[in-house]
Structures are given as C-alpha cells and as structure tokens.
Design a protein around this nucleic acid. Sequence first.
DNA 1: ACTAGTATTCGACATATTTCGAAATATAGA
DNA 2: TCTATATTTCGAAATATGTCGAATACTAGT
Lengths: 117, 117
Amino acid sequence: MSNTSSDDIQLAEMFKALGNPHRLLIFQRLSNCCLPGTRCDLEQTMRFSVGQLGEGMEIAPSTLSHHLKELHRSGLIKMSRQGKRVDCWIDPAVLNRLAGFFYNPSENEMRGDRDVG
Amino acid sequence: MSNTSSDDIQLAEMFKALGNPHRLLIFQRLSNCCLPGTRCDLEQTMRFSVGQLGEGMEIAPSTLSHHLKELHRSGLIKMSRQGKRVDCWIDPAVLNRLAGFFYNPSENEMRGDRDVG
DNA sequence: ACTAGTATTCGACATATTTCGAAATATAGA
DNA sequence: TCTATATTTCGAAATATGTCGAATACTAGT
C-alpha cells in the first residue's frame, strides 16, 4: 500500500468498526442524542452506560465489552468509569470529521439551505 | 440482534467495505471528482477503469477485482463494461446518504456559515 | 471484610477476510 | 481465427473477527 496516510488508516479503522451491525447499532444509540423532533444542547452529548447500551441486544456481556473496546480503539467513542458503571459517548468532532469525508461540495444545490439569505 | 432494520444492515455493509484500507483508497480516488480547488459538474461523476484504479496500489489484479466486487456489492460503487475495460464510479446519492448519517443537526453553529449576516 | 452489581480479560472455537497465482472469460483488432 | 489487453473466477493458505463461558477486576454499600 503505497499511498495511504496514517489519517486514512484511522478512517478505515473507524469504518471497520461501524461495519459490524452490533457496533453500528451501539453507535446509532449514542448519536441519536435527542428524541425525534427535539433539539439537544451542544455540551450535552448523550451518555449511556455499557449495560444500557447492551439492553435489547442479544449478545453476551463479554461480547458487548469487546465491541465497545473496538469502537473506542478506532476513536469513535469515549469511555469513562462513573462509579460502578462505565459511561460511553461520542465526541461531536468525530461526527463532523466523518460527515465531512462524504460531503461533496459540488452538491450544495441539493441541500438547498446554504445560500445567502 | 433484535433491533436492526435491513436499511441499517446495508449501511453496515457499506462501512465494512470502507473499512479496508485498499478499498477506502479506491473509494477516495472515485470521490475526488475534481482537482483541488476545482468544481465539477453534478452529472459528471468521475469514472476510472479497474486498471486505472489499481495503479500505484501494490496488489494483484485478482485482489483488486475482489475489492471492487465488495464495493459494488455493498452498493458503494457502480460498474459497467466499456469495451475491453470496466468503468467504476460513485452514485452521488450514496455520498448524500452517508454524509446524512453522520450529520448532527445540533451542531449548526460549529459549521460557522449558517448564521444571519 | 464481605457482598452485590457492573464491566473486562482470557482462552477457545467457528467463521470470515485478505491475499495470491493459475486458469478462464470478454473484447477489440489484425 | 489468432493475439493482445483487461478483468474475473477459482481454489488455497494465512490471518482476523465474532462469539461465548468462566474467571477476574472494580466500585459502592453493609
């Protein structure tokens, strides 16, 4: 692989992490920071404990832990112990970085909300 | 896995496809539709033949073909034979869909180009 | 110190992925 | 039809991943 920067490698790691349905579901739970229609604050990123994230997913706790570790290693989520629990959340900068990767500047017209008002 | 729609599964497939450095590089080559600073037309998506996409990547043709098939199966790229060659390109709608997945509406301010002038 | 709740590490196993070379297929042109 | 170019298909081998259960670690209360 000649032409691959370390930046690209980290991107690939993130995509690989999202490439598993269980991990994608976890990521979606964390990124849906407010109820539909609601609007949540910038500083108020949604946090879930490991146990909460596993609710409804039929996987063993050890498997859940493994997936969370993958998400964390790739840089997609942050984790920090809060008493008995470990909280997980998404750094908003990560969402910007990923959205920016796919954002095609030639398609401004299609978004229709950027022009001078 | 209780809570996973077929839509989410297809998303996961796309991310999995992008999770390989070789495939990510191919995808980037196809999505950089114009030179830096330039602006390319909507209808004029960038096309590269299989051989062109493999240039500079040190992988066997059969491996390249395999990766292209993965990208195609996941829905990330389109392919069509053009004489001796097979051309590849990205459906712009795919870029929108993926960008939309990461786009966080609570972060308008961080983009810095939306407020009243 | 003991216990209960929460989460991680470890070892094992089945399955999937990446990669290649050799052979096969498709196309255009002499 | 024969040849050269472009790409795919087909095994096969090495490595990686997803999953679990059992054992371990961390924390807050009693």
